[in-house]
Design a protein around this nucleic acid. Structure first.
Length: 212
DNA sequence: AGGACGATTAACT
DNA sequence: GTTAATCGTCCTC
């Protein structure tokens, strides 16, 4: 089964830096574990391949990052800190290993299932506020690594990718990395309550600026 | 075979 | 503000 060649696949076949802001407002829907949950994306981060020291692909292809080197439109799930899963949308041409980390979103369908998966969340706006929280809400894990987001029969799908970045997008440094922190490759929807807290004057060294 | 560390979170003081 | 939790992955010996 080859990948379906769709307009969305073509649109995702660009650098993660270009695709990232266009994913804001798009919807990821998962059907795993007997529940449907959908999240509207509000915060993302771009990662490049060989030229980005913060990228999992920086040191070449391995069993873990294999999906990143494949075709655009697939989900790259990885396990970190011994307990959390996070997920990226693979972008770019085959072999480039450029991707977009899904950092936060708003649960717009399957609220009961999302709450059950995230018992620690005190408010619904916290359910998918953070990359591991978002992945948890959607039931992401080893089973969803490599899922084709553009296949209607896939357990995880993406809809609503925009042709241009929507209005109200801000950009700033990426979170939780120790290299290439000067690149403002994190994008989010200004004022959205599901975006993770920005810490001006803290770790971040640059104020958010309009992404244009 | 061994060890350092991580694209994080929740629970502390 | 700090720190424990917890283990797969990757690098070094």
């Amino acid at each position: 089964m080859g990948d379906r060649l769709t307009p969305a696949r073509t649109a995702l076949g660009r650098a993660g830096l270009v695709v990232a802001p266009r994913l804001l407002g798009a919807v990821v829907t998962s059907d795993v574990g007997g529940a449907r949950v959908a999240v509207r994306i509000t915060e993302v981060e771009a990662y490049a391949g060989a030229e980005d020291p913060a990228s999992h692909a920086f040191r070449g292809r391995t069993a873990r990052n294999d999906v990143m080197f494949g075709p655009a439109g697939h989900l790259y799930c990885y396990f970190t800190y011994g307990m959390h899963w996070c997920a990226n949308v693979v972008c770019g041409p085959v072999g480039e290993a450029t991707a977009v980390l899904l950092r936060a979103g708003e649960v717009i369908d399957g609220l009961p299932a999302a709450r059950a998966r995230r018992p620690a969340a005190r408010r619904d706006t916290d359910l998918a506020r953070g990359p591991a929280r978002l992945a948890s809400c959607l039931g992401f894990g080893r089973d969803t690594d490599g899922a084709d987001l553009l296949d209607p029969g896939s357990p995880v799908r993406l809809a609503g990718l925009r042709a241009r970045r929507p209005p109200g997008v801000l950009a700033g440094p990426r979170v939780g990395i120790s290299v290439a922190i000067e690149r403002p490759w994190r994008f989010w929807l200004a004022g959205d309550p599901t975006v993770s807290a920005f810490k001006p004057g803290g770790r971040a060294r640059r104020a958010p600026r309009p992404a244009d």
